[in-house]
Design a protein around this nucleic acid. Structure first.
Lengths: 136, 136
DNA sequence: CTTTTATCCTATCGTTTTAGTAGATTAATT
DNA sequence: AATTAATCTACTAAAACGATAGGATAAAAG
């Protein structure tokens, strides 16, 4: 399941991209437009800012804005920041690899074999989609 | 993340398929061979039996066995029983569809658009893999 | 018919994750 | 100085996850 965090984060990014100009947009406006709890969205936008997707400005006329062009924001990086590993098991993860406790031999593991394919297919989708693609 | 339930269930099915003959295999043997908590595995095998993947026999010489040929067991059906929906959001699920609370228009939703592609790519993998493919 | 073996079934439980909420702080405008 | 809006820390209710406990049932062996 996709977490609400990721879902809301994607929607917020898409909204910012659809607004277009680089004027800051307030949390309240995004929350209202996308039907998201404002306080929850606050924390999500914060992690998006800390990870280099958004810039922010305080005080009147403040808000959040995209730092990069929508076409330069890959879904792979967004998903990794919001949702975590793209792989469904750590033993097939490119960026978050971990060996399984059980499973003496990955090469022989049926789950490993299947999840490698699932990872690759998901990666291909995320690599072929930028934020710009989602709002067109 | 793939749940342990699904992971263990897949491993158990793969083990039964690799054993080959239709002789019942005891839970204890599967659990030991795959490094799984026996009690937990018990409940997993039970749901696999209830969903038509396994047959069982009680008493001495009893255990679990595959009902169908490994090549006739599609990963789509296994995943749906063990893990639930293949889609990451209910609004793009074929078998477990649900409308989102937020989101007035699915056609306009950026998340919907992305998750449709992810679902389709995962489906293609699961449809192209039978239990027989996993053990070869 | 009794003992053994192994599945079947229900209930419970501790931990972690999820999805928030509350409230005070900081910084930029007006 | 007042207002506005992001920032930060801490807390919490509810659900999901990964088991565990213990007895019931059924089949086979003696």
């Amino acid at each position: 399941m996709l977490s609400k965090k990721t879902k809301y984060g994607l929607k917020a990014l898409a909204y910012l991209a659809s607004v277009g100009d680089k004027e800051p947009v307030q949390i309240a406006e995004i929350a209202k437009h996308e039907n998201i709890s404002q306080k929850f969205l606050e924390s999500i936008l914060l992690t998006l800012r800390r990870n280099g997707f958004l810039g922010s400005k305080k005080g009147k006329g403040g808000g959040y804005y995209l730092i990069k062009e929508p076409k330069d924001i890959l879904m792979t990086s967004v998903m990794r920041v919001l949702e975590g590993p793209i792989a469904m098991v750590p033993c097939v993860s490119l960026n978050f690899y971990e060996k399984c406790d059980d499973c003496p031999d990955e090469g022989e593991c049926s789950v490993h074999k299947l999840m490698l394919q699932v990872r690759d297919s998901a990666l291909e989708v995320y690599r072929n989609n930028t934020l710009a693609d989602l709002i067109s």
